[in-house]
Simulated assay, not measured.
Amino acid sequence: MTRENGEIAKADILEGFTAQMREIAEASRQRTRLIASASAAGGRVQVTVNADGVVIATRFSSDIDELTYEEIAKAVTTAAQNAATDVARQGRELLQPLRDKRARMPKLSELIEGMPDIEGKAPTVEPASLAPPRSRERLSQLGEPGPEFGNAVGYEAWTEGQDKRGATDSGW
């Protein structure tokens, strides 16, 4: 009788595992179809990304020439980052039912005596920085010092006495 119960339990576990793999495969297929778009610079720039956050389309409005190259570059970056954030949110929402179901299932350490809790030992993945290359934040992550300006003067000190100066000042 005990052996029979064990076989039934194994069959139930295998059936549950197979069903869960089908659900994961379907969620994965649905995820690959996700896209998100975001606009910046008053709608002059629109960027669309796929489920992996990779840019798949960039569109400029007819009045894009009113922006400088620097403003366009910043708008493209901002729109791409916002679209990537949105598609990541969509992906989390899509996969949340699977995570909830998994959380209700017993852990391997609960099923096998002496098995350590593997999930508790998994490292956390930190989000990647959105800072531009060679920025202070990126350099500090690499252990490189950011640019330092030893001769910088505070605004108050710099503007002190400025009201007496003008275009005819000898400093020009």
Rank of each mutant, 00 (worst) to 15 (best):
G16V: 05
F17K: 12
F17M: 13
A19D: 13
A19R: 15
Q20P: 00
M21Q: 15
M21A: 14
M21F: 11
R22W: 05
E23P: 02
S28Y: 11
S28E: 15
R33L: 14
I35W: 01
I35Q: 14
A36M: 04
S37R: 03
A40D: 12
A40P: 02
A41I: 05
A41L: 07
G42V: 05
R44G: 02
R44W: 09
R44H: 04
V45K: 00
V47P: 00
V49D: 02
V49T: 08
A51E: 12
A51T: 08
D52R: 11
G53E: 03
V55L: 10
I56Q: 08
A57P: 00
T58I: 14
I64S: 01
I64C: 01
D65C: 07
L67H: 02
Y69D: 13
Y69L: 13
I72K: 06
K74D: 09
K74Y: 06
A75V: 03
Q81G: 02
A83G: 05
A83Q: 01
A83W: 01
A88V: 03
R89E: 13
Q90D: 08
Q90V: 02
G91N: 09
R92C: 02
E93Q: 13
E93D: 15
L95Q: 07
P97Q: 04
P97W: 08
L98T: 07
L98R: 04
R99Q: 11
D100T: 10
A103L: 08
K107L: 05
L108N: 04
S109M: 04
S109V: 05
S109C: 13
S109H: 15
E113S: 14
E113W: 10
G114V: 06
G114A: 04
D117C: 08
D117S: 06
D117N: 14
E119D: 15
A122D: 02
V125K: 10
V125D: 03
P127Q: 09
A128I: 13
P132W: 05
P133E: 08
S135H: 09
R136L: 07
L142Q: 14
P145A: 15
G146R: 10
